[in-house]
Design a protein around this nucleic acid. Structure first.
Lengths: 186, 186
DNA sequence: GCCGCCATGTAATTTGTTACATGATTCT
DNA sequence: AGAATCATGTAACAAATTACATGGCGGC
């Protein structure tokens, strides 16, 4: 049972859904391909944490709907008391920033602009998710309270990333052509 | 050649260093164990992107110092023009937040406090790194300008994370004992 | 006619973690 | 006495990505 498995259980605790559906809904918070999700679901079904049934569709392919069993619910609740591991971020931009002095300024600007666009897209996506939660459900006591928390988590991060991009861009543009440093010389 | 490999080249473009040293210095920006780094370095040496020599030490074990070759430098520079992939974050807290309604409030608070402490530690670590860069070197035109950018990147993110934790904690504490929602009921 | 979405699955490969292995020095 | 740091490496395992495989529907 890895984190993704528990994540799938967490989504299924809300409502029974198909693997495809889970894949789409988990994306903004945990990147995973369908090829990773499908096998995990069937393993969890074998362990009887999940049960499944097929829904016949006529215009689209049939769906396999997974539901959390009581065992699954228990397992999820237990997981909530285990030590929380530190988050892991792998961002190629960090590695690139560190050797940005080796490339031309136009390229540096383009790299940051690309990332900036990503954060703008991401913020819009989170905004759309947030709009789906009505004000009265954002209060403590509703399950949606935690949806709201989670979306805000994404937005806080995306905003910080966006601000950083803007800040770097002003720095890069403000400074006129100053000669770049060379290898092994400070 | 994966991102970590390029990351190692990026650090080596600044100054020749040992695998152990690289492992320590890359940590705040890209989590990688020595068992992953050592093999990558020797592969890159085979490809002649790096060259190495041993330094004898008397109180500590000997060191193998890697230096970037001209080929390595070229490879790094080329990499800077490739399309930037989106960052990947895997945070178990996201998954847990989504099913926090299933646990008691005390546990919820403890989870967030743990994460808050992590961000405080991280901010302190970045602050220490930042302090090492003198003001005059933080300007565009120095390599250290990009060190500064990178550290700020980490700080922007850690601050956002910390603010989110504080915000969630006030929400969780402010609200007195309201009955939590139950499975499959909104 | 080709592309993308829907929907599920497996196989091959790469990437990352944990464990094994060694050994001196320094701190508690 | 035991743990932590320094320092390098390999082996086994787990996690994640890319590619292979199928097939209908709808848009351009």
């Amino acid at each position: 049972m890895n984190t993704l498995s528990y994540g799938l259980l967490a989504f299924l605790a809300r409502e029974p859904s198909s693997g495809y559906d889970l894949m789409l809904r988990i994306q903004p918070f945990w990147q995973a391909k369908h090829s990773q999700i499908y096998p995990l679901l069937s393993i969890m079904e074998e362990k009887e944490l999940l049960s499944s049934y097929w829904i016949k569709q006529f215009d689209k392919p049939d769906k396999k709907i997974y539901t959390l069993t009581e065992q699954g619910t228990r397992k999820l609740k237990e997981w909530m008391y285990k030590t929380l591991p530190d988050p892991v971020t792998r961002d190629e931009l960090s590695m690139r920033t560190f050797c940005m002095w080796m490339t031309d300024r136009d390229n540096a600007i383009e790299i940051i602009e690309t990332r900036k666009a990503y954060f703008v897209r991401r913020l819009e996506a989170f905004e759309a998710l947030k709009d789906k939660i009505p004000d009265e459900k954002r209060q403590f006591g509703n399950k949606e309270f935690y949806d709201y928390m989670l979306i805000q988590k994404g937005m806080f991060n995306a905003s910080a990333g966006l601000e950083w991009c803007k800040w770097v861009l002003t720095m890069l543009r403000e400074q006129a052509s100053i000669e770049p440093p060379t290898l092994y010389s400070s």
